[in-house]
Design a protein around this nucleic acid. Structure first.
Lengths: 163, 163
DNA sequence: GGATCCCGCCGAATGTCGTACGGCGTAACG
DNA sequence: CGTTACGCCGTACGACATTCGGCGGGATCC
């Protein structure tokens, strides 16, 4: 999976603003619109770009309080882990979750209207599940997402001309 | 900040696919294109939608290994916290970070090419900073993001007709 | 070393779309 | 019961996405 300079430029632009017009993309990357369109199509087809999503402000939608819930699952066997993951991932309070190593097996990121929502999530919802052996709650004062992800490996490919 | 059923429907659609055409949005929500366009414009203007971003596959860009690094900062004073946050947020390995309560002050989410990258991040980069008092590393086997965020408060507003 | 193949880039044409604007119906208010 | 205001709709225009054929440079093979 090699990405040349043009691919990386397109990825950077689209991560910053997925609604930029193809013409703008072409202009800022220095290629013709048809080329940038084809490259972006390939990036999607190859699975490099998995989708385009609108980002919403959690405060603006009435869920300003965030928390991280560490959960230990017993037994930590595959069916149990996967079952819990699917169940947790679609709870309305959950906006993300990690399957982790270490003392706990999950780290669940939730956003709720107030601190009571955090408490309710832990003592009402999580306790529904028998496999939950331990829970540890951490408030998140802020969640910063980096602007864009840079590809790591860079073996420059040079097929065709690079006008 | 009240969002009616149409706003919520538009938010749901745009979180799933930010590139859907306005005509499609209008058709699937049952309003005219001019109405959906105006509503989306208002959602952006009010700050409910903060942007549109392409999602990239971390494996496809050569960074398949993820980890969560808990960091304790000393002293946990505002200038120190904010300084560290700004510094950490723009490191290339970092794809997100939380400012947390509890035993640690930060939870840093990184994505790197291999496990050596995790080790290097901790012992090379983090040790550059004097304010880092303690570090704890957790591997993340998987990161699941929920499909979309539902607005919490729903006071139905009913301005104008709702054909 | 030269001819050939291949692949990616480009430019133009077409159908679709985003966007602004004027009018209207409904609901709320006095 | 008259008035006001707000949001929705339809239309028109300019811009855009998308497709297709052709071209040029690099690599390969003889």
């Amino acid at each position: 999976m090699d990405l040349d300079a043009l691919d990386r430029a397109l990825l950077r632009e689209l991560q910053t603003d997925a609604r930029r017009t193809n013409r703008d993309l072409a202009a800022s990357t220095g290629v013709s619109p048809s080329t940038s369109l084809e490259r972006v199509r390939l990036l999607r087809e190859r699975g490099v770009i998995t989708g385009y999503h609108a980002a919403v402000d959690l405060e603006a939608v009435g869920r300003p309080v965030q928390a991280l819930i560490s959960v230990r699952i017993r037994p930590p066997a595959r069916p149990v882990i996967e079952g819990f993951r699917e169940w947790a991932a679609q709870l309305p309070e959950v906006i993300g979750l990690f399957v982790t190593s270490g003392a706990h097996d999950f780290l669940i990121h939730i956003a709720v209207p107030d601190v009571n929502g955090v408490y309710a999530f832990v003592i009402d919802r999580l306790t529904e599940r028998r496999e939950v052996a331990d829970v540890q709650t951490t408030l998140a004062y802020e969640h910063v997402r980096s602007r864009h992800v840079e590809p790591a490996a860079e073996r420059p490919r040079d097929r065709g001309r690079t006008r």
